[in-house]
Amino acid sequence: MSENVAAPESPVAEPPAAESSPVSRTRRGKDIGALIAFLVIAYAVAAFGTVSTITNVDGWYSEARKAAWNPPNAVFGPAWGILYTLMAVAAWLVWRKRHEVRPVAPALALYVVQLILNSLWTPVFFGAYPGWGPAALWIGFVIILLLDIAVAATLASFLHVSRAAGWMLVPYLLWVLFATTLNWALAALNS
């Protein structure tokens, strides 16, 4: 006659969850700090652009001839706020992959290049117009064309590191391409 006897439970305790380890908490703290840094940098670029825009939107820009598809001014602030947030989170997702097989430095370098171009466009387009006239719009157009290329390259590079990060830049690329058409129209209509 055989008896069904349950084996006694092993006295070995399970290891603590990885999320509660000191190393995991430190990594999580660095990740959050890095996310905040990426957001601060992106919002600093936005603030820099706002300085050039704020006095000119109600100045020369309000009187300028615009494309028929030019949205109301109220659309730009919220759209850019969302886009800068997506850009920062995408860069942070790429940065988080820094210890994995794929190198992230080239992708983040492209991100910095597009941020620089982004930060140059607004002061040239809006801020320089009162002094330079239509030339500022055409120089802005060249800068935004370079920005289009840089954002597309950044998006492609991000996709190789993190698909989520790459897809997060799609709205930004689409908006910058749309802004390029607005810049071209303003330059052509006001020259």
Rank of each mutant, 00 (worst) to 15 (best):
H99C: 01
V124P: 05
P123F: 05
T122E: 10
V170E: 04
L146P: 03
V113Y: 02
L110S: 04
A150E: 10
L146A: 15
L108P: 09
L159M: 15
M168A: 13
V161I: 14
A153F: 13
W121A: 02
E100F: 07
S119V: 00
L117I: 11
P106T: 06
L146C: 14
S157H: 03
F178M: 10
I144T: 14
A135E: 10
I144F: 11
I116D: 00
A109Y: 04
V170D: 02
G127I: 13
W167R: 07
L115S: 04
A128N: 05
Y111C: 15
A188N: 11
W132G: 12
V151I: 15
L147H: 09
L110Q: 08
S162E: 12
W175G: 02
V161C: 14
A152G: 10
H160L: 14
P171S: 05
L159D: 12
N183W: 11
F178H: 06
Y111I: 11
S157Y: 07
A153D: 07
G127F: 12
Q114C: 00
A150F: 01
L147F: 11
A153Q: 14
A187H: 11
V176H: 00
W121N: 03
H160W: 06
H99E: 13
W167M: 13
A109W: 12
W184R: 13
M168G: 04
P134K: 08
G166I: 05
N118W: 01
T181W: 14
T154D: 00
Y111Q: 14
F125A: 06
G133E: 01
F125S: 04
A128T: 00
R163T: 14
W132P: 08
W138A: 12
G127R: 09
L137T: 08
R163N: 02
A153S: 14
L146Q: 00
A109D: 01
L146W: 01
G131N: 11
P130F: 02
P130V: 10
V176Q: 01
L173S: 01
V124R: 03
G140H: 04
L117D: 03
P134S: 15
T181D: 04
G166D: 09
A153I: 05
W175E: 03
V101F: 00
H160Q: 14
F178R: 08
L182E: 08
A136E: 00
A187T: 06
A164F: 03
A188C: 03
I144H: 13
W121F: 13
L108C: 06
A128S: 13
W132I: 10
A109P: 01
A165F: 12
L155C: 10
H99F: 15
M168V: 03
F141C: 09
L110W: 14
W184V: 12
G131Y: 13
F178I: 11
L182F: 03
L137W: 10
A156N: 09
P106Y: 01
I143T: 04
S162G: 08
A165L: 07
L159W: 15
A188I: 09
V170K: 06
V161Y: 11
P103R: 15
L147E: 11
A105C: 00
M168F: 09
L186K: 05
L145E: 09
A156G: 13
L120P: 01
A165D: 05
L117M: 07
L147S: 08
F126M: 09
L173P: 00
P103W: 11
F141V: 06
P134G: 12
